[in-house]
Nucleic acid binder design. Structure first.
Lengths: 352, 352
DNA sequence: CAGCCCCGTGTTAGCGGTAACTTAGACTGA
DNA sequence: TCAGTCTAAGTTACCGCTAACACGGGGCTG
């Protein structure tokens, strides 16, 4: 060991050959042992394993990837990692990938920066990832991803209309998400059941497909339930925007009895604004969020929200990717979210 | 293009050779162009670039890594990615790495699972990462990381006493963090200045080095400021634990006028408990958090907290790693946090 | 104008694995 | 007993790229 350090030129790590020499076998036999090939005599295997142990051999991933042209690495491009949704999705994918024996390389790109996304995808293609997951809620980034799909199995974690272009159908491209519309449906029917007649919406930023999906679902579900669409305000996911919008809302002429915020963080700001303006939640007004992000159970009051199973989402992504790699066409997946009823929703105050 | 599809055997992607043939030069010249070597005639370069364009050539990362034995990939092991701190740190590292021309491979392991951490580190070593960052706040994981440091430049993003063992000093091992004690110092002096005489602490889980560092700094700073150590309660970072502890606290015989929570999420639960029990913040009691995680600006009331610059942290990690790779010994880094004063702290109620 | 250096380019030899084929010996069955 | 298998190993030929060296020709020096 000290000899290693003292040696003039830095000793290169032991290779298959070195192990072979040490064990008195051919490098191929070592390869067989390393790969768990059963056609090796136990005695030989033992000798090889011992040599591996002694030399501290580790197989070289690059060489293996070069020879097999498979890396067992999945690339994940995430937009807007600061938010709970994307970062949770990333974590979900990472967990599932590891369990499936894959490893994850990550690139986090700023929202809407299609060039950065394209670069990241290009890098992953260079790196020879076996599969690609793109977690994005903006059109430009998705388009970049669709182009990539020709070169490698790709999963788009996104909602909204991804029109099946030529490239889409030809290549291994799958769309997976948690069913946004269904989540909103749960919210609306919960509020309707409580007796609310009008539901306002605090939407996410324009151009974000999740924001858009939730907005459209709000419109549709409120209408089909025979309820009235309350005022529509638009925020940017941040708590501060929720607060600002909450002030606006609270001073409106005839505020409705229920507000559906497109995410929990905005809902939190909204709660504060209502509190400041003297509205009591849920007595005067019911508030619902979306995501069930950490801490949402301890807002004042604890927030009714929609829970998305990000772990399941990750698992679905990896499964689809693996299926695609094995050559099976994969159908898109829409996972069901669940409603978590807490203390921010109640019957509306008696009419008039 | 259609021909590609129709071809019986799947056409392998174009290699350096193919480009060379197309451009009528040797593969080495193509390599020079690809690597930006200036010793190529503009005319030749142009021809090569055109051939690259036409064939859609991308260089093979595995082959390159094999030949150079450098991958330009950084491995990051993160413990407890669900929390704001670790996930933000990961993001910070990713951003900085990309800017420095490196790419990031991630493994998220459960808290305290040293085996998983060891596996992840082993994998990264196999994969031939050029550097390793371990974001962990538990001893067992750190020990695993220290062993790895011999094989590859390593940065430990962690607080607490990492004793410089033989391995540490010999290998490229650096410790980087945001100065926890300094953050706590800001909190304590802020509260002292407001006139508080006793400060309680809502600590994080035992065995977590950040929790421990914050706890110890609380003890030290409160004592040296000549103040009284208030009751010490222990949570698990979650908002729910903060809430439960808050109820306990509120029903104590003589609750002090100020509480320092070890993170914002617990502080949020604490705020709710106080609110429920009829205490008004900050009139009756001041509350301070730690992290400045998203939404902390819109709790009721907005929380005074300690902001950690996770982007700077990431940058420091990458810089240290790059320095280490280039053979320069690196000193550890402690980044200064800042105090964000909001509405949850005020002068204590007048002492009778 | 010989000698030198430098420039643009080509040639060769690996990097550390895996796949596919080959070989030597043991075992089988007619 | 001998062809026919089967088994455990060895041999060889790449995978796609880079590093190091080789080489011819033009410009410079003395």
């Amino acid at each position: 060991m000290a000899a290693d350090q003292a040696n003039s030129r830095p000793t290169r790590p032991p290779a298959l050959r070195d192990v072979a020499v040490a064990a008195g076998v051919s490098h191929q036999t070592v390869s067989r042992v390393v790969n768990g090939n059963p056609r090796v005599l136990p005695a030989t295997r033992e000798r090889v394993l011992q040599a591996i142990e002694e030399l501290g051999y580790r197989r070289n991933h690059a060489a293996r990837a070069l020879a097999t042209s498979r890396t067992r690495v999945l690339g994940v491009v995430v937009v807007n990692t600061r938010l709970y949704g994307p970062s949770g999705t990333l974590l979900g994918i990472e967990q599932a990938a590891r369990q499936a024996g894959y490893w994850v390389s990550v690139a986090s790109v700023p929202e809407g920066d299609a060039t950065a996304a394209r670069d990241a995808i290009g890098h992953f293609l260079d790196q020879g990832v076996d599969g690609l997951a793109v977690v994005a809620q903006t059109e430009p980034v998705l388009r970049a991803a669709q182009q990539a799909a020709g070169a490698c199995p790709t999963v788009l974690v996104t909602s909204g209309p991804v029109e099946p272009t030529d490239a889409t159908t030809r290549a291994g491209l799958v769309r997976i998400d948690i069913d946004q519309a269904m989540g909103v449906g749960l919210v609306v029917s919960h509020l309707a059941q409580l007796g609310h007649r009008q539901i306002a919406h605090l939407a996410g930023p324009t151009g974000n497909l999740h924001a858009q999906a939730r907005l459209e679902a709000w419109r549709r579900h409120v209408s089909t339930a025979g309820l009235t669409l309350g005022p529509l305000l638009q925020g940017d996911w941040s708590a501060a925007s929720g607060y600002a919008l909450g002030l606006t809302w609270a001073n409106a002429a005839q505020p409705p009895t229920a507000v559906f915020a497109a995410n929990d963080t905005m809902a939190q700001g909204l709660l504060r604004a209502l509190h400041e303006e003297g509205w009591e939640v849920p007595r005067d007004v019911s508030v619902v969020g979306f995501d069930d992000s950490p801490g949402t159970d301890q807002t004042i009051p604890p927030l009714t929200t929609v829970r998305q199973d990000l772990e399941a989402l990750g698992k679905a992504c990896v499964e689809a990717l693996v299926g695609l790699m094995e050559g099976f066409p994969q159908a898109g997946v829409l996972l069901p979210p669940g409603l978590v009823v807490r203390d921010s929703t109640a019957r509306p105050p008696a009419a008039h």
